[in-house]
Design a protein around this nucleic acid. Structure first.
Lengths: 187, 187
DNA sequence: TGATTAGTGTGATATACATCACTCGATACT
DNA sequence: AGTATCGAGTGATGTATATCACACTAATCA
């Protein structure tokens, strides 16, 4: 599973064995069971998480208690309440497991140490953030320009693997549509 | 106007005079008139732009020709089709001026030179991108969780200055609502 | 300065989608 | 093995918002 993280970083920047050992020393592996919380709304966010295996969801609950999926994180993606993590404020969202999940945890302190100690890591993280930013922009555009049914079809074709693993109720919440409406889309 | 850029960067990382001179040498100042295009859909994107004064809009046109505002950029913000800029592919969106606008242009080549030559710049840019990413996430959440009228009111209170300078038709397009509906929100 | 265009408001109508209420099968729990 | 709970489908109804059509004013430009 260390190799997985290494490949993930090396997709963006090459690393020597020593450099990767340095990187790895800043991460802590951890296992979670389905339904366990990694981050709870209202608490401080100690880590950002690289997902080795399993599946997480990042959820915002509005005043009326309704849940909205901000994102899913499958293998090889990162998840946390970034706002709360980077500003060291209380989480406004929560993260929990849709499946048993293995992650590498990175504390903010270790993140800073990594960036300071290895410029390549900072470069990697910048590229990761740029990718995330472009993905967010595509999602905004898709919310602005397309109807719910089309968004669902886009999701089906973009992430067919995800659809198999996530209940439709949650896909609906990610797409910003009610589960009843989504259920009528197979027509 | 150089000072403006310097202050902008120094909000995130401190710079010596020499370092700022090095940074500045990688930017080209440029002036545009209202209605002029900085980026046109279908063309390559040579620069990302730091706005010194004026106002830009980033627009996506869907198949039916309808325009959707992805973002505005006022003084002290950055604008470009980031996807096209970083991947050196053709723009899927366009950028043009709502007012006469002064920008600093940064080519991708100079961006890379800057990052390579001054780690502080890369750090600055990472922090900028993280901020942008969090803002995008807030916008996604606001599209998922709130009604158009509430989104409008949020915008009014968050960016009162913007509302004065942007026609309501364009605000509507930014909010993902028709201009007619937005026009009825003053009730 | 007179004509064109951009920006806005407003009524009437259409529609995408939410909500409520109920059913049913499949999991998971003790 | 029996019982909650979860995920899913579907009809009836309500509503936020889109669309179309038209009118009016303020910029812009020739």
């Amino acid at each position: 599973m260390e190799e997985k993280l290494r490949e993930h970083i090396q997709k963006r920047v090459p690393l020597t064995d020593d450099e990767f050992a340095f990187v790895l020393a800043h991460f802590t592996p951890k296992k979670y069971k389905k339904h366990q919380f990694l981050i709870q709304e209202g608490e401080l966010v100690s880590y950002s998480y690289y997902v080795v295996s399993g599946l997480l969801k990042l959820v915002y609950s509005d005043e009326s208690g309704k849940q909205h999926i901000v994102s899913f994180a499958m293998e090889d993606w990162w998840e946390t309440d970034f706002q709360a993590y980077f500003t060291q404020t209380k989480a406004t969202m929560s993260v929990d497991c849709l499946e048993d999940t293995v992650v590498f945890c990175l504390s903010l302190e270790n993140y800073h140490k990594l960036c300071a100690g290895l410029q390549k890591f900072e470069r990697f993280f910048l590229q990761l953030t740029i990718s995330g930013s472009m993905a967010a922009q595509r999602r905004i555009l898709s919310l602005l320009t397309t109807q719910a049914k089309e968004r669902y079809e886009q999701l089906l074709s973009q992430y067919p693997a995800l659809i198999q693993r996530v209940p439709k109720t949650l896909l609906a919440s990610y797409l910003g549509v009610s589960r009843e409406t989504l259920s009528r889309f197979t027509d």
